[in-house]
Design a protein around this nucleic acid. Structure first.
Lengths: 340, 340
DNA sequence: TGTTGGACGTGCAGCGTTGTACAACTAAGT
DNA sequence: ACTTAGTTGTACAACGCTGCACGTCCAACA
């Protein structure tokens, strides 16, 4: 328990002493405040550079100033889709003074993580795929600027949202399958506490199935995010007398697992079964997968969310809701009709 | 620029007023300090629960206490290997009071990110695949408890390290190829500013090639982390008169790309070319990849790093260095000899 | 020469904690 | 009743900043 002796950080006082000015003057320079002569600024900057001073975020935060750090919270780090979102956030932040830190909800609860981040006085938060209620999120939004990615609930006004049109995703998949001659189209969906995103995708699937007069073929199987369970579900859909000839998967790695199960079971893709994934992550394009997938442009989502968040930090009050339109990227895994 | 009116957070003072005690008393309860009666503790806890009080990390940090938050910094979020490390960290933290936040070096420099995290008064830092010099890291370690994953430089004493035996990885790959009848074995490596990890892997490869009397076949191609360049490099290795019959890739997605290039080029795996990846990430097991890979157990690395970091935070001074031994997981992509 | 006002620096009161010094009270020993 | 020691709670000075209220100086103008 003995505390190791740590080097003291350089503070604003050290800089002030070195430059021979008051510490408030240094603070003014740091904040680009009014009433600083060029001479003073220069002196202070020299000392800052000499001593390698960097301001303490904690102190900034506690005394009401900006920390210029935003947080991005997401549920899982295995899905490469989140990397796309982060790339968008990252590039939106590139020309600003903001830094970003991430929080991944794994064992810890979303609430606890968000609590930690809030109490670190971050300037704003982007939460991806939140499992909290609108009510809890509104309460949170009263304490910190907030943007949600993947939160479809009707007309929240305390925070902004950025969404893919997930119903359209479902419709796109079904229509593409139908155009390519598939009929017994199932959906492999997610058993999730955060309903809305996946639910919309299911609704789009159902709607398009009915529109194509395939209502009797509708089958949705929900599994948790667990390879074993996904595998089992895919196996069931691809065997027995009621075998499906096409599967729309809620995210790419489920689709890749489905390809794997089909291969092991001796089924040809796309001949015996078509597969469509979601998110168009980098693995789709590999020749051994050649997976048709629906692109919701994670990068766009991240970019827009960041734009909205920064606006909000700068003072915007009125909520904005941004919708991204998905597009289907066709590859071999759904190309029944083109098949020789 | 108008600042939105935000709800004030509940502070230790609010709790004190509600419970009818001094604010110091509340602080004592929070810190489990000596000299608190059960009655007092009870009263305070009731008020805390009632008001939903949570301490401010910023204030804690500034006044020298623990924040119970550690940071994990890594270079990239697309490589699923890092998810394995985080899973390890996460599970090591599960039974403790520590929270974790992540920082991903993308556009921002590692130094700037680490600076931000340090100035947020995190209790400790784990850096994965650092590009900083040992010298800079030692300086950093003087300010904050530090553990490095993937930093092979000799005998640093200011911080702990956790490493895979990367030379052994290279040897394992070559030996396995040789045992399976491959001879013209190339290595697809990384063109990286952080040399040490990949360099060791290359050294292991070279050493084993020489030991197998294949020194004249040694060929190492380094590319940046960019699918286009990787693709080009794989294509070159797999065509022309000097075509290789086996490729050891520094990480799995490079190997998956190599499988893809082989497929497009009409080469059979494992018949015409064998492929081995590194990290044994989840995609290896899919039937369409069935990629032999070297498992360095990211989860172990994360687990051990976290253990060491917590020890250091609690006061350990002497450096420790932990080495993990890799193992090869054989799948179809390298099974030349077993081929019918 | 006196006055006004703008430009520039300084002083200081917070911000929400930690942790130490200290006061008040209690119970036991004389 | 009187000291002693232990136990419990309070007061308060940090910590490193922000941002406002002032004080000082100097130039320009009447």
């Amino acid at each position: 328990m003995a505390k190791a002796p740590r080097e003291k950080n350089v503070t604003i006082h050290d800089v002030a002493k070195d430059a021979g000015v008051s510490f408030s003057a240094v603070s003014k320079v740091m904040r680009n405040a009014y009433g600083v002569s060029d001479a003073l600024r220069e002196k202070v900057n020299v000392s800052i550079a000499k001593l390698g001073y960097t301001p303490s975020m904690s102190a900034r935060g506690i005394s009401g100033g900006r920390t210029f750090v935003i947080g991005v919270v997401f549920p899982d780090m295995r899905n490469p889709f989140f990397a796309d979102i982060l790339a968008g956030v990252s590039s939106a932040l590139e020309r600003t003074t903001y830094q970003m830190v991430q929080g991944i909800v794994q064992h810890s609860s979303e609430a606890a993580l968000v609590q930690s981040m809030t109490s670190m006085q971050l300037d704003g938060l982007i939460i991806v795929g939140s499992v909290s209620t609108s009510q809890a999120l509104s309460a949170l939004a009263a304490r910190i600027p907030l943007v949600l990615i993947g939160h479809h609930l009707p007309e929240v006004s305390a925070f902004d949202t950025v969404n893919n049109d997930d119903a359209e995703s479902g419709r796109l998949a079904v229509r593409h399958f139908v155009e390519n001659g598939y009929r017994k189209i199932a959906m492999l969906s997610l058993d999730s506490p955060n309903g809305t995103v996946i639910q919309r995708r299911e609704e789009g699937y159902i709607e398009a199935m009915k529109a194509a007069d395939l209502g009797k073929n509708i089958e949705i199987v929900r599994t948790p995010q667990n390879l074993r369970e996904i595998q089992g579900a895919a196996q069931r859909l691809l065997s027995g007398p009621n075998r499906k000839d096409a599967i729309f998967c809620w995210t790419d790695y489920v689709a890749l697992e489905t390809l794997s199960v089909a291969g092991i079971g001796g089924l040809a893709v796309p001949g015996d079964v078509g597969v469509i994934g979601h998110d168009n992550t980098m693995y789709c394009a590999f020749d051994q997968n050649s997976l048709t997938s629906i692109d919701q442009s994670g990068e766009q989502l991240g970019l827009q969310a960041t734009r909205l968040l920064v606006e909000r930090i700068e003072g915007r009050q009125k909520a904005e809701h941004f919708l991204v339109h998905p597009r289907l990227v066709a590859r071999r895994s759904s190309a029944l009709s083109q098949k020789a």
